[in-house]
Write a protein that binds this DNA or RNA. Structure first.
Lengths: 194, 194, 194, 194
DNA sequence: GATGAATGAGTCTTCATTCAT
DNA sequence: GATGAATGAAGACTCATTCAT
């Protein structure tokens, strides 16, 4: 299994740095290889082609995202508490890896539609997790019984995504995580039973 | 002024069609020229370069967006009514021009960071309009006095953007505008004074 | 029609020279372009890809081959006279263009099977012409009534091809055309009614 | 001596299969190694480089060709009988090994000029054998006293080669050896003293 | 002897832009 | 103003060969 070899992760990490520093279209395979400290051809021992690096990058970095968050929020009883933790996790994870934040919020979106569709598949798991939190809230009576789950999920994800993108575009110069309680409160307010 | 000549708009409209039908990276200047019924070189009599076409496209198509909406919502007294109209306008305008929806939500995002920054400048006017609505709501007591305007605005814009992108990715096959009342209610709920 | 433009032939002629002088695998598109005195990209205004240059080269240079020979031998009554002329023509044409001889006999055979199949299609017309001569000979009683046309044609073409290839491999340093009467006689002898 | 070790022949046989099944340009060293059941690097313990495999292949497979045929035809008295046997042998040997037929008639010809020159050296022995047969015929008065040996040899070899190549290109689907008597007769006819 | 992971040189093609007509 | 033929820079990927184990 290639994924267990050190060079696999070495190359993915190099890709994050190369893309963050040079931009999506200026991150040539040769630049990624140089950053990883391997020869150009070595890349192709671990990845089918350049697109495969980017998909793998997203899967490796964001694939665990949903799992980690899921585990983390299981300790909480109420949907409110779960949502707050989810928002905080989301912010903290991207705050901790500034390069990754640039790559996911700005650079990877320049990829073609095909790649973006594959990226969306990875995201789907995360969106389903949000749905679960919302359903919990409905069942427990925290949210109105006729809450439109899909709409609420789009509100949560859209809001977070917009906030993070704006923060990255402003060079990550303010404390994103500090907004977590406020935005959570506002979202919960929106879903509340009046 | 080039903008008053018919070929200027002819080329921009051709660009929307060419990008929507072929995708951002497959919409070469020669394809846009062909679609517009002019020679490749003619493009450069009206636009500095290819990027200039795209920026102008966004300015022409979305620049009026804010103005139209502003005018439209002035008839409404309450922030709630204004927001509802704004959301509806936003959905309707993109529903009416399927090509434009594809271009703004999917294709133009593949452009480089530089272009996206310029696009954001065009958006700024629209974001300021949202801010005005929110301030009205605070002043009139419809929203809590300590509403975080920036956060609320990101929530509104992020939610709408996410909703529209999902709708476009699903081939625009459901009625987007029908969700306007629901999403408005949910947003207003979030901003409400408890 | 691209074929009527001077650069089309300019590029094909440059390809013949470039391949003859550098060898098939060392005749890069950039070398052909340089030899033709055009930019690399210009090649692609006249040819779909590199393979297209080579096929066109063969079609242009050898496609007329059959036609010319056909016209030329129509003045002769007997199959014997026709065959002699055909052999002579074949030798003379390749003797007159040493570069072309190298390209067709040695270099183009290094092309992949796909390209060689297309080349064979061009040759087919020539092989049919040989068949016609043979049929004429049978009808006129010059050759035996049960002459195996296919076999005879393979004998003619195989013999000529082998002779020319050997001659090219020996740097074209002897007079190939001088052998025409002898080889014709030997071939005719083989087909004769005893 | 490397040639006496089993892996030497194992690799050559693997090369024949790999080239026949994948084509010359798709028969990478790694594919040959896999087919031979050895590691890539092992190839280089037995062969200097890839070209060396191909030359050795030709030498091993065709080198015995002339010897076998020479031995076989020594039982015959007349040049006519010898030639018939030679033609038959030639056809039968290639009919018996379809892979080898594809490799020698189609694939190996895609090799570069240098390799083809070395292949020709291996062939020289066979061509000399043909010359001997022809000289025998002249001495015995079977052929005309002024038979052009070189020409006759090119006629024989060219004819056989063309016949076999056509047969391979037609997927070896007809009985090649069945044509041996006919083609021999035709060739002999051509060399006969009228 | 045997392995196979790593190397890195080499090339076809696209397309935004120019400029002579 | 309008044309469109010509330009030429730039990059992903393959594969024969090596060498540490």
């Amino acid at each position: 299994m290639k994924k267990n070899k050190p060079k696999y992760h070495q190359i993915i990490d190099a890709a994050v740095v190369a893309i963050a520093e040079n931009g999506y279209h200026q991150a040539q395979v040769s630049k990624i290889a140089k950053q990883a400290g391997v020869a150009d051809g070595t890349i192709y021992l671990y990845f089918k082609n350049k697109e495969d690096i980017l998909i793998s990058l997203f899967q490796e970095k964001m694939g665990t995202f949903a799992a980690k968050t899921k585990e983390s929020i299981q300790t909480k009883e109420t949907a409110a508490a779960q949502l707050e933790l989810l928002v905080q996790n989301h912010f903290i994870l991207l705050t901790e890896d500034p390069h990754l934040a640039v790559v996911t919020q700005l650079e990877l979106r320049q990829s073609n539609k095909e790649l973006r569709l594959k990226i969306n598949e990875v995201l789907k798991e995360y969106l389903l997790l949000i749905d679960e939190v919302l359903q919990t809230g409905v069942q427990k009576g925290e949210f109105g019984p006729d809450l439109n789950i899909r709409l609420a999920r789009q509100m949560i994800f859209g809001t977070l995504d917009e906030m993070i993108t704006t923060w990255v575009m402003n060079d990550q110069k303010y404390d994103l995580a500090a907004s977590a309680p406020d935005v959570t409160k506002m979202l919960l307010n929106g879903f509340s039973n009046q």
